[in-house]
């Protein structure tokens, strides 16, 4: 087994993920690209686990499992934020969110009545 193959695959996947995060406007697609990057990191961890003998056996695979759990939590919270953004703005385009504006509740929120 030549370890260069999975390493290069992981590097190219990471590049595709970076490209997707910078290129996409739709927030759900940005999350998909983030998943690609996390998977590239996982692939590197597992490959390193099989090719390098560390002091703790199977540390790489344990870390890969941890990263998978973290990714699941990240997707849960990320999708909650995306759905809330859609509820407030009727759009999930990330480049139309004004970071310097007042909170969305004071700008355009016809459904919720403020006291």
């Amino acid at each position: 087994m030549r370890p260069v193959i999975p390493y290069v695959v992981a590097a190219l996947l990471f590049g595709a993920g970076v490209y997707g995060v910078l290129r996409r406007r739709n927030a759900v697609l940005v999350l998909m690209a983030v998943e690609l990057m996390l998977n590239a990191v996982n692939l590197i961890l597992v490959t390193a686990d099989t090719t390098v003998r560390g002091t703790l056996p199977h540390g790489g695979q344990v870390f890969a499992l941890f990263v998978i759990v973290l990714a699941a939590a990240e997707v849960g919270v990320g999708l909650a934020i995306v759905l809330q953004l859609y509820r407030l703005r009727s759009s999930v385009a990330v480049d139309t969110v004004r970071l310097d504006a007042a909170p969305a509740s004071e700008l355009d929120e016809p459904r919720l009545v403020r006291e």
Binding site: A11, F14, G15, Y19
Partner: peptide
Amino acid sequence: AVLIGGGAGLGLAVLF
């Protein structure tokens, strides 16, 4: 995006 993503991917690939 092409510059940064391609640079990161190909750079890491060459490094590995």
